[in-house]
Write a protein that binds this DNA or RNA. Structure first.
Lengths: 261, 261
DNA sequence: TGGCCGCTTTGATCCATGTCAATACGATAA
DNA sequence: TTATCGTATTGACATGGATCAAAGCGGCCA
């Protein structure tokens, strides 16, 4: 979609296996929010034609990033938030002593950069894990437009709030779950997010390394690797490097609620 | 302040030790946002007189809660956000299997309830840890008013964003720190928050149990207790039940950046 | 085609924190 | 004052995950 200026799910640089029947409603042909396939994940849901047009003019600019390129870094002045159009990102924080932690993985339709609003400075790094493209949404313009468009205002608030709830979930995971539960939760979450984008729930390609997964889950990479192996032994999944096939989703879910205690 | 309808820091039900010189600017006498002592922590910063008046009329309603009473519960329909006026709260999430996690502690001037915006339903429980009072801010009215008042809009966005950043910090803590680092970070955070409210940085009264601290920090209560004891042995703090005196703040800070590795 | 390099897997061992249990403390109410 | 109950402390022991180390695997570039 980047190169062509045209856009469909299928053209995404995000090559996913098992790209199964994409609902027609998700397949867009023209550019801009008004035609973006990520409508319901992003800010434009429920806007009228005229309102969409206004949003389009605001969002005009795009930015392409190569794998491993930073969208922004901790300390950068905050000017805009970003909607992931294609590709895959991680956000992470680096402590002075060298320890770092991945705080999230973002895929198409998700918003990046809201951490900068409060202080006018970004508090984390955002890095593309594969070649990606984002819509640049200048923040002061977004605030201005959402003073005019109630629905846009509310959509934005919803996006921020959902981010808060996501974070709560991650705290829960980090605070109370054991290694295998964490990984099961992670896989189910990935699966669910791929699903809601029209991809297979059962088979996908992880964009991040074991170390990044571990950092996100508060585990060491060896522990992640071992948990993958165990899941495979138990017939829950098939792993081949970054390629994952979920064989027994129900089994994974069972891991979640059955803490040993 | 509740009973009298009048309000100053000193009347707070929050009896803190060492309530040291409160800057005059923080001491308010009348009620309402326009005179609230929590100005700069809350939503009203930078508003003009007329704007403040409008905000006042919106925020009119208050609610008092007794210790252990719920402000809202997970699943409750979302209608309003709440500004803590006096007292002390915790938020927590309960998993089906009985495990729960404290996701935050909120004190005067902090906002509760934003987790409900995205789904129209609260995703966590908010419980008063001591007798407390909140300002009720009906959310749709807040959205309406912040379409009129740019500064209010921006203040609200800042509050949400800061909450995101706070959560990132907690993830970092839960994901990468060892027990003593976590507790040191917790104590320093408490100290800093008390300070910015005009209380002593060095001496305060914890409102929560060891178990609640542990839940928040992803530790068992015994581990919290042991870490307190160790800090005391090392002369970093003096602990007597819930009463904490910080003897060597620099020493605590050193614990943070010195991971063993 | 071969060699290098980053990533992943697997094994052996260690240690921080969890678990279980006993006791102590402090506030409250009788 | 004493009994009670929730909370906190402390000790002994168990264990999940970290750490250290050594191969394996695969992709990429020369």
């Amino acid at each position: 979609m980047d190169q062509s200026g045209q856009s469909t799910e299928r053209e995404s640089e995000t090559e996913l296996p098992n790209k199964s029947a994409v609902p027609v409603s998700l397949v867009a042909i023209k550019a801009a929010c008004s035609q973006c396939s990520l409508h319901e994940l992003c800010l434009s849901e429920g806007l009228s034609k005229e309102e969409l047009a206004k949003l389009d003019s605001l969002v005009g600019a795009r930015r392409k990033l190569k794998r491993q390129q930073n969208l922004y870094r901790a300390g950068d002045p905050f000017e805009a938030i970003y909607a992931v159009r294609t590709g895959f990102f991680k956000t992470d924080i680096l402590l002075e002593d060298g320890r770092d932690q991945v705080t999230g993985f973002q895929m198409a339709g998700e918003i990046l950069g809201m951490d900068g609003i409060g202080t006018e400075v970004h508090s984390c790094n955002a890095v593309a894990l594969e070649d990606s493209e984002v819509c640049i949404i200048p923040f002061s313009q977004l605030e201005q437009l959402s003073r005019e468009i109630k629905t846009l205002q509310h959509n934005f608030h919803k996006v921020m709030s959902r981010e808060l709830v996501r974070d709560q979930g991650l705290m829960m995971l980090l605070g109370t779950m054991r290694a295998e539960e964490r990984l099961a939760a992670f896989l189910l979450n990935m699966s669910q997010r791929f699903t809601s984008r029209g991809y297979s729930a059962a088979e996908f390609h992880l964009r991040m390394t074991r170390e990044e997964i571990g950092s996100y889950l508060g585990l060491k990479l060896e522990t992640v690797s071992r948990a993958f192996s165990r899941f495979q032994e138990e017939g829950l999944i098939a792993v081949q490097q970054k390629h994952i096939r979920i064989l027994d989703g129900a089994g994974l879910k069972k891991l979640l609620n059955h803490q040993p205690r």
